[in-house]
């Protein structure tokens, strides 16, 4: 994509569109900053005045519960003014183009846009068309990237496991449709993970998935052998066209994470899922609710990580800043 529009001239985060284009130092800075924000959620007054006077617009062109509410909470805990724009009922349905919508919002002096869109590259497109002082954060674009989800996963992993360079990972399921998996793989590689395995049927794996620096296997049992972290992915029914799977039952039979299969992994392995979970399709309820599961911690950590990314993107808003 040529020039890296994610960074300003000082190498600081300006837009957060994908993990690609960043570096290990910046990823670590996001995780360290998030560490500081965790305590804010544990206070009686869950608020700090960091982004007071800033206006943030959450543009969700695609439905979302967890991501939208945790962004909303993160923004409010930073004292920003928040605009949640429901795209289904807004002017886009009257034929206004994405660019027109954006220009109108920019005219309202919005400082930062959080964008979720079903088209890959939408956040990048918006970032290219906003004024210099405005930042854009990708909250998921098509099959491409979901960088804040990947960072909250890295944060959760770091809470439980010390050193990324000594961990074995398994990412299980529908990698083909998963922007989360793509962002996770880039982040894990950047943080120096030696072994990432992708497990799933051929029909749900991108061709040349090995080019991302992962090992691919269709065998769930072998793939889980000795791993420290298991990342389950949601079966994305809404993005599937054509006959990629015989049935959900058969998928669970081969790729569902059961208590039995979990025994293959390291004894202290953690189980993650970006949500929403299809219980009984990709994961057994007993596993989802077990002591290995850190799924709800992922949700809580999502707030601190999004606070970190939002505040880091806003700190460059003053061009004098050094």
């Amino acid at each position: 994509m040529g020039k890296n529009i994610q960074l300003d001239s000082h190498g600081r985060l300006r837009h957060f569109l994908s993990i690609e284009g960043l570096n290990r130092t910046l990823l670590t800075e996001i995780l360290d900053t998030a560490e500081n924000f965790v305590s804010v959620g544990n206070r009686a007054a869950k608020k700090v005045p960091l982004l007071r006077g800033k206006t943030i617009a959450n543009l969700f062109f695609e439905p979302s519960t967890r991501t939208r509410t945790t962004f909303d909470l993160a923004e409010k805990r930073l004292s920003a003014d928040v605009l949640n724009i429901n795209i289904n009922t807004s002017a886009t349905t009257k034929g206004e183009t994405l660019l027109d919508t954006l220009q109108n919002l920019t005219a309202m002096q919005i400082d930062l846009f959080v964008v979720r869109h079903s088209a890959s590259g939408a956040a990048h497109f918006i970032a290219q068309h906003v004024p210099d002082s405005v930042s854009v954060i990708n909250a998921g674009d098509g099959r491409h990237a979901h960088p804040t989800q990947a960072m909250l996963d890295m944060f959760t992993i770091r809470k439980h496991k010390e050193d990324f360079t000594r961990l074995r990972f398994a990412i299980v399921g529908d990698v083909l449709h998963s922007r989360v998996a793509r962002s996770q793989i880039h982040a894990l590689n950047m943080l120096g993970c030696p072994e990432v395995r992708v497990i799933g049927p051929h029909t749900l794996s991108p061709s040349h998935v090995e080019d991302l620096g992962v090992h691919f296997t269709t065998n769930m049992e072998a793939g889980l052998d000795g791993v420290d972290v298991i990342i389950m992915l949601r079966l994305q029914n809404e993005r599937m066209s054509g006959a990629l799977l015989p049935s959900k039952g058969e998928y669970f039979h081969y790729y569902g994470l059961t208590e039995q299969r979990l025994k293959r992994a390291a004894a202290d392995a953690i189980v993650m899922h970006p949500g929403p979970m299809n219980r009984g399709v990709e994961i057994e309820s007993a596993v989802a609710d077990s002591g290995h599961s850190v799924i709800l911690q992922q949700v809580t950590n999502g707030i601190a990580v999004r606070m970190a990314v939002l505040s880091m993107a806003m700190q460059q808003s003053n061009p004098e800043g050094a």
């Binding site: 360290d32 560490e35 924000f37 700190q315 003053n318």
Partner: peptide, 23 residues
């Protein structure tokens, strides 16, 4: 107390992440 989130010069000097939240 780590007052980084309460500074009035945040947009000028930025955040300095230290793993030492207020306690």
């Amino acid at each position: 107390l780590n007052i980084s989130f309460y500074r009035d010069d945040f947009t000028q000097i930025g955040l300095h992440p230290q793993v030492s939240p207020s306690n």
